[in-house]
Design a protein around this nucleic acid. Structure first.
Lengths: 346, 346
DNA sequence: TTGAAAGCGCTAACAG
DNA sequence: CTGTTAGCGCTTTCAA
């Protein structure tokens, strides 16, 4: 069994002190005027024997772990796992590792995970906040731990945050349905009062009512089992027989919706038009392909990391910043009412 | 700014020694006969002031980080992100955190990530091995770091490993196509000689040739841009005009295949049948829905963690074990040749 | 230009 | 039953 080398071993092998090695390794060699020759010698030796500093010891000493904690709703969800991948790339380049946790948008789990990550001495957090975690986040901020929120702000709390324009994104999508001749658009959303959902609902409400349409919203609970949710949607459609288009406020709800429409053997897009918030790669292979509001995932991640580093690198207090990004509408076949020409003139 | 409490602070507040606290916290209180009353008092106080031990210090002292490194191909891929989620659940319950890395099935990136995680003192690895990482893995094993491979073994190296029966899974799928009357089945796979791909190919070859069919395999490079891959598949189909069914060896290849078939305006399943290795949630919403070979993700993760803990908890050498799990065929519409009845009697 | 030594927060051998 | 003490491997102050 090969034992792991420590800085002490290297120092002895080279007959120099640990300090010297530490300086060379941390780019302070010039500052302390260590001869180029010695620097080279040390670097070469380290390379040869494959020495890498023990990060736990470094961490204990410096109080930094070079690790960022990322809390998202669910790593197995297409949207969140794509976010995770981008964060991994961006932070990896900066020499940071990631630990992540799936919160299920649950207050207790989120609090728990924040605690666990805190004990692991993560240097900062990127959080998709579940409701009600204000107090825990406050502790973090009191300790001057950098935190950035994404996807939604934490209500009653201002911290740096990267959001998309949920209102306008939705409004554009609803308008698109209207332009295509749909006349009875209903919305399926989560029974959550988190900001992103409220904004999407507002986008629907305002756009539809300005067009003189009636407003019908079905709210489904976050963890509702799929079969029950399908029944709720069926009842809803039964009650609102005139509905000729559905806007789903999340990807996951769209799954439920498609399941239902499949059951009901309704034809998309003729009998019913579909638009979904959050795009998925595979949507283009559905038949018909599904129109979706796409979030700029790459930008979201870049901005979030930038906000995080502002806090990480600044010594003084950084005032919270909110960055809002636009969405884009990916128009596919599920929203192309082929009867519209016949209908509009009416 | 609230300062973080250390064990020393607690000791002073309670007028006991650090040792006593450490023992109470690590479940050794009874062993060292610390009075129940004192234990309760300590626990209560710790709870009240919210003290949590600094894991970096613990780690430095014990050499354990309570962190597992997981290397997969790509966290944004549906299959791998679902694996990640299960690992998170299972390991989380055992008090372990996860750091993960996406290797892109690339040798250099994998080696690099293993190094980085090693410096972060992870206690063990679960790895989807890229080719050619034997030497790096060997270093790990020399240091007695527990390692478990999943999805495929590392060639020329025996370590504990959780696999699925790629051969039989594929064979079953091909047989299913044959039973449904398809007569010219081709396979689209990656040009990789990793074991899982070889086994899938073997499953196809043997089953198809036993049925007296011709064998046609198209191999696509791992990182081939989608548009180029589509062209390759088109050329292939052009050359083998008789092809009436395609077996895709991975999820990702299926995307390329569906894109192509869409372009070609071929009808699934009548003109061409489809089966895919690896199931995806959304496959059931495709029209027609896609038949797929599903891997038992939950079991894979459970088994892998078990193999990992065998190594983690044992003091002596653990001889490598290989666990092979069965796949299941999820039959949907893309493989139901509606003309088959007419064909078979011929 | 380099080295000695203190100490980050914790665990565990050893002493009482 | 409880406390004293010696490090784990590293960074950094201070002295030479």
């Amino acid at each position: 069994m090969k034992k792991k080398l420590s800085i002490k071993d290297i120092a002895e092998q080279l007959h120099v002190s640990k300090t010297t090695i530490s300086w060379v390794l941390n780019g302070k060699a010039d500052q302390y005027a260590i001869s180029k020759a010695l620097q080279r010698k040390i670097l070469k030796h380290i390379e040869k024997v494959g020495y890498k500093p023990n990060r736990m010891a470094q961490g204990l000493r410096t109080g930094k772990s070079k690790t960022i904690g990322i809390l998202i709703e669910d790593i197995s969800d297409a949207f969140f796992s794509t976010l995770a991948r981008r964060f991994e790339e961006i932070l990896g380049k900066k020499g940071y590792r990631i630990v992540y946790g799936s919160t299920e948008n649950n207050t207790e789990i989120t609090k728990e995970l924040i605690q666990v990550f805190r004990n692991h001495q993560v240097d900062g957090f990127i959080i998709v906040p579940a409701p009600g975690i204000e107090s825990t986040v406050k502790e973090l901020v009191d300790e001057k731990t950098p935190v950035v929120f994404i996807d939604r702000p934490l209500s009653d709390y201002d911290g740096s945050c990267v959001l998309v324009d949920n209102f306008r994104g939705t409004a554009k999508a609803i308008q698109h349905l209207i332009d295509n001749g749909y006349q009875h658009i209903a919305m399926v959303t989560l029974s959550s009062d988190q900001a992103q959902m409220r904004e999407r609902e507002r986008g629907y409400q305002i756009t539809a009512s300005e067009a003189g349409m009636d407003i019908n919203v079905l709210k489904i609970k976050y963890h509702e089992p799929k079969d029950k949710a399908v029944i709720q949607l069926k009842n809803f459609l039964n009650k609102h027989k005139e509905t000729d288009a559905l806007f789903f406020a999340t990807n996951y709800l769209a799954e439920i919706g498609l399941e239902t429409i499949l059951d009901l053997k309704k034809n998309i897009p003729d009998q019913i038009g579909i638009v979904v918030f959050d795009d998925a790669n595979l949507f283009r292979f559905f038949k018909p392909s599904i129109t979706a509001i796409a979030q700029p995932i790459q930008s979201i991640c870049e901005q979030a990391v930038q906000l995080l580093f502002e806090q990480l690198e600044s010594t003084s207090e950084v005032s919270p910043r909110i960055v809002q990004l636009p969405t884009s509408l990916t128009i596919r076949d599920s929203s192309a009412n082929r009867l519209s020409k016949a209908k509009i003139p009416k």
